[in-house]
Write a protein that binds this DNA or RNA. Structure first.
Lengths: 210, 210
DNA sequence: ACATTTGAACTGACTGGTCAGTGCAAAAGT
DNA sequence: ACTTTTGCACTGACCAGTCAGTTCAAATGT
C-alpha cells in the first residue's frame, strides 16, 4: 500500500502525477477555446512541463483528449450511479431517486465545470474521431435515468404515457443547461437554490397541480 | 419590394446571393467541425466559389463567422417573438403560451439544426471574440420565457415559489437538448412526438399529479 | 560508505506541413 | 463602364509531432 512503490498498472507515481497535471491543463484550455484552437505548446506550458513530455505520455493530441474524456466520464457515471443506488431501489419513491440524481449532476458540474462545458460543446459534433467515446458516455448517463423512469412506470408511480428515452434526454438536458447557465451567468446562486428550482420543475409544481 | 432591384444597404442581388451561399456552406462545416478546424478553402469549395471571393465579401474568416451568427440570430429571435405573440397575451393560459414556445423552438431547430448545434457549442465558451453576440441572443430568448412565467405567477396560474430566471433557463435547456438529441440520435421521430413528450414534462404529468 | 550503471522520465530545438490572408490580371456578369 | 468573380501563385506565421541529448533516483557493484 506504499504509494511511492512501484504499484500495479504500469504507471509510476511520477508519471501519473504528470498525466494528471496535463489533464487539468488540457481540460480548462479546451473548454475555453475548443480542441482545435488549443495548441499542445499551451497545454504543456500551463501544465509546467516540456512539450516532449506530452508526447512521452500520450500518443497524440487527440489521444490525450480522448483519454481525458474517458477519465472525466468515469467520474460522472460513478457519481450518477452512486446517487441512484443511495436512494434505495425499491423502498423509496422514484421521484426521490430522480431528485437525487439531479443533485448529483449539479454537484458534479459544480466540481468540474470545465469538463462539462467541453463535453456539451463537443457532444453534437459529427465527423470527429472521438464521437463514439462521447456517445458511449451519453448513453451511460441517459441509461441510468431511463432505468429509474422505467422502474417508476412499472411501479405505477409515473404515467404509462411517458416516452422514456425522450423524457430522459430532456431531463439530462434540463440539468445540464440550467447548471451551465448557473455557473456562467448567475454564479452567486447556491447549489441548493438551483436544486430547489429544478426539483420544483420536475415535480410539476410549476404548472401542474394546485 | 422588388427583390432583384438595388435594395438599401449597398449589396447588389448577386453579391447577396454569394454571401448567402457562403453562410450556408460555413454554418454546416463549422457545426460539424468547429470554427478553428474549418478552413476557408473548404468553405469556398462547398459554396462553389473561389477563395478570393470569400475575401472580397468578408474582411476575414472571423468576420464571416460573426456576420453568420448575427444572421442566424435574427431568424431565431423573430421566430420566438412571433410565437409569443401568436398565443394572445391575456386571453389564453400561460401554460399554453409556454407550450407554443416549446413548439416554436422545436420548429426552429428542425429547420436550422446546424445553426443550433453551432450555437450551443459556442455559447458557454469564454475568451472568444463573439461571446457578447451570443449572450445577447441567449438573453433575448430567455427573457421571453421569463416574461410568460412572471405573467403566470401574477396570474395565479403558477406557484409564487418558482425561481423565474432559473426556471426559464432550465426550460430553454430542456428544449434545446431534447431537440438536439432528437436530431442526432432519434431522427426518425416526428416533431409532434417530441413536442408531446416535452409538453407532458412541462405540465407535470410525469410525476406530479396522480 | 562510495562509485558506477541503468533506464524511465523529461527536455526543447528542429522539421515538414498546413493554412489564413494577399496580389493581380483576366473573365464574366449587369 | 462598373462591379463582382475567378484562378492561382505566393508569403509568413503557426503548429503537431520528432529526436538526440539530459536528468535523476534507484539498483547494483566494490
Amino acid at each position: 500500500m506504499d504509494s511511492s512503490s512501484t504499484t500495479s498498472g504500469g504507471g509510476s507515481a511520477r508519471r501519473e502525477a504528470t498525466r494528471q497535471k496535463l489533464y487539468e491543463a488540457a481540460v480548462t484550455l479546451i473548454a475555453e477555446q475548443g480542441f482545435s484552437a488549443t495548441t499542445v505548446d499551451e497545454i504543456a506550458e500551463r501544465a509546467g512541463v516540456a512539450k516532449g513530455t506530452v508526447y512521452y505520455n500520450f500518443a497524440s493530441k487527440s489521444v490525450l483528449f480522448e483519454e481525458l474524456l474517458r477519465h472525466g466520464v468515469g467520474l460522472l457515471t460513478a457519481s450518477l450511479r452512486e446517487a441512484a443506488e443511495r436512494t434505495v431501489g425499491d423502498g423509496g419513491s422514484k421521484v426521490d431517486a430522480l431528485d437525487a440524481m439531479i443533485r448529483a449532476g449539479l454537484v458534479f458540474i459544480d466540481r468540474y465545470p470545465a469538463f462539462t462545458q467541453l463535453y456539451v460543446a463537443e457532444l453534437w459534433r459529427t465527423n470527429r474521431a472521438w464521437q463514439s467515446t462521447l456517445m458511449v458516455v451519453r448513453q451511460q448517463a441517459v441509461a441510468v435515468v431511463e432505468g429509474v423512469l422505467r422502474d417508476g412506470v412499472a411501479n405505477g408511480e409515473f404515467s404509462e404515457e411517458i416516452d422514456v428515452p425522450l423524457t430522459a434526454a430532456a431531463l439530462v438536458g434540463m440539468v445540464l443547461v440550467a447548471a451551465l447557465d448557473w455557473k456562467s451567468f448567475q454564479p452567486e446562486r447556491s447549489l441548493d437554490d438551483v436544486h430547489a428550482a429544478l426539483s420544483r420543475l420536475l415535480q410539476g409544481r410549476v404548472s401542474g397541480c394546485r
